[in-house]
Amino acid sequence: MVAPRILIGGGGGDEGKLRDEESAKMEDSPSSKKTRLDGRFPLTRWELAVAMAVFSVFVIGLFFIFMKMPAAEYGKIKLPRTISDLRLLKDNLAIYANDHPAQFILGYCSVYIFMQTFMIPGTIFMSLLAGALFGVFRGLLLVVFNATAGASCCYFLSKLIGRPIVNWLWPEKLRFFQGEIAKRREKLMNYMLFLRVTPTLPNLFINLASPIVDIPFHVFFLATIVGLIPASFITVRAGLALGELKSVKDLYDFKTLAVLFLIGSVIICPAILKRKRTYE
């Protein structure tokens, strides 16, 4: 299901346009082109080396964590890609999670944060698994913690090497986002909460683009940890009834999306009302 896109507000954005022009000039400069690995590849050799170094650190950390975990039938454990895969994984992990709860939670959190940091698809299955194994309350705590930690890691990784990637993948969307942020500096928290609660912009894009458009980390962090609660609750709660769930698309039907946008509208209302008073 493709999330609807809502454009809020209009005008402004001069500061964002100037930044775009400056970055475009830098990217078109001969010195920049010489350091690119390929005319179409967005990263320089240094940026690629940084990305590989960070990735290697995470992989080594995961390796040592799983080496220290009690033995299990790892042949039956794999990242789920369908609801059927998830049901089998849940059955295989239920006993292990009961026998070794601390080790299992450490492994679960490590995999979730790794996937979220490096934008690996499938975290929604990890969220459903949390509900199926731990129930709504503990599952929600786990999902919000891991999603926030992974998004924060992605934020700092993007701060290092994200600008060329985002400019390469989503140039138009980045310009739109930059303009909206420039107009909402005074009520930035409300706007970021709105984006996190509603599917207006993908969370992946928000994680990568936020440091590029100069969203302070404390605003990003608070908006993430609070704004992800409604959607995470829906997903974790659905994990309790995996047998009835046919597809991931069933999670976000029209009614669910309407509720999320209603919550988001309540959040952003103070900013809209303040702007109206200012122009009156």
Rank of each mutant, 00 (worst) to 15 (best):
V2Y: 09
I6G: 10
G9T: 11
G12L: 15
K17I: 12
K17Q: 14
L18H: 12
R19Y: 10
R19C: 08
M26G: 15
D28C: 07
S29D: 06
S32H: 07
T35R: 08
L37D: 03
D38F: 09
G39E: 14
R40T: 02
T44D: 06
R45Y: 13
E47Y: 01
M52V: 14
A53E: 00
V57Q: 03
V59F: 00
V59W: 00
V59P: 00
V59M: 01
I60V: 13
G61A: 04
F63K: 08
F64L: 13
E73P: 09
Y74Q: 01
Y74A: 00
K90C: 02
N92K: 11
L93A: 08
A94Q: 05
I95C: 05
A102K: 11
L106M: 09
C109P: 01
I113R: 10
F125L: 06
S127F: 05
S127R: 10
L129P: 02
A132T: 03
F137V: 14
G139I: 11
F145D: 01
A147G: 05
A149N: 01
A149I: 07
C154E: 01
F156M: 02
L160F: 08
I165N: 13
L169V: 12
E172P: 07
K173A: 12
L174Y: 10
E180D: 12
E186T: 05
L188A: 07
N190Q: 09
Y191I: 06
M192S: 10
L204I: 11
N207A: 04
I212V: 06
V213K: 04
V213H: 09
D214T: 09
D214Q: 14
A223P: 00
L228W: 10
I229Q: 03
A231N: 11
F233D: 01
R237N: 11
G239H: 03
A241E: 12
L242A: 06
V248S: 07
K249Q: 04
Y252D: 02
F254Y: 10
F261D: 12
I263A: 06
I267M: 08
K274T: 13
